[in-house]
């Protein structure tokens, strides 16, 4: 589920951090820059693990800050394809199940990857696995489930531009808000729930 990656970067230590020991200041800057962010094609950074190498600092004319090239290792959340993870069902819809892992929520199980003979019941807002004519197992919201990672999707997210001041008047219905909620995540997982051992933890 987690891995260490070696990165190198040029960090800018602003003057207000000069009072700290050098390593502490670098760590703080790196954590501020990388923690809880997705690196494309690499994964979600949790935090800096350790600092391997610190080069001499550089100064830029007209800037009070110091620039230091560092090599460091950080913890990344990057499950491999085929790994079994545990999470909670966030929501169910006709298209599939959305899974929530507290710190990472962009996990989706499409309907084609849920158990065979499963149907969605809009009335109960749940997916039902009909094992045989007698046994019906429910995949309810907030149920703790096991799932298998099938595919990882990285999206290039463009930087946010300035907001259109006219949009306030144009989108009276609040479309803008919806757009924000449906924005493509930089890192998402496609999961499956088809084999024995998957599905609600309490079943097995």
């Amino acid at each position: 589920m987690f891995q260490l990656s070696v990165l190198s970067d040029l960090t800018r230590i602003p003057p207000n951090l000069f009072s700290l020991p050098r390593l502490a200041a670098i760590k703080q800057e790196l954590n501020g820059k990388y923690a809880n962010k997705v690196i494309p094609k690499l994964g979600l950074v949790i935090s800096v693990w350790d600092i391997l190498e610190v080069e001499d600092g550089l100064l830029k004319p007209g800037d009070g800050a110091i620039y230091i090239k560092v090599r460091f290792r950080c913890i990344l959340f990057r499950p491999f394809v085929g790994e079994v993870l545990t999470g909670w069902i966030e929501s169910c819809s006709e298209d599939g199940i959305r899974v929530n892992m507290e710190f990472f929520n962009d996990i989706f199980i499409p309907k084609s990857l849920i158990f065979e003979n499963s149907i969605y019941s809009p009335k109960e807002n749940a997916w039902i696995w009909e094992m045989d004519s007698e046994n019906r197992l429910y995949l309810d919201v907030n149920e703790k489930i096991n799932f298998r990672v099938e595919e990882e999707v990285f999206n290039d997210v463009k930087p946010k531009g300035p907001e259109n001041p006219l949009s306030v008047y144009e989108n009276v219905n609040g479309d803008a808000k919806e757009e924000k909620a449906n924005a493509t995540p930089p890192y998402a997982l496609v999961a499956s729930c088809q084999t024995d051992g998957m599905g609600c933890v309490s079943w097995w």
């Binding site: 589920m1 987690f2 891995q3």
Partner: peptide, 19 residues
């Protein structure tokens, strides 16, 4: 930023939790 080693080591949940 440069990625030098994409997967240096795998970590267990325990190690991450301790950190």
């Amino acid at each position: 930023m440069k990625v030098e080693v994409a997967r240096d080591k795998l970590l267990s949940n325990y190690e991450v939790y301790e950190h």
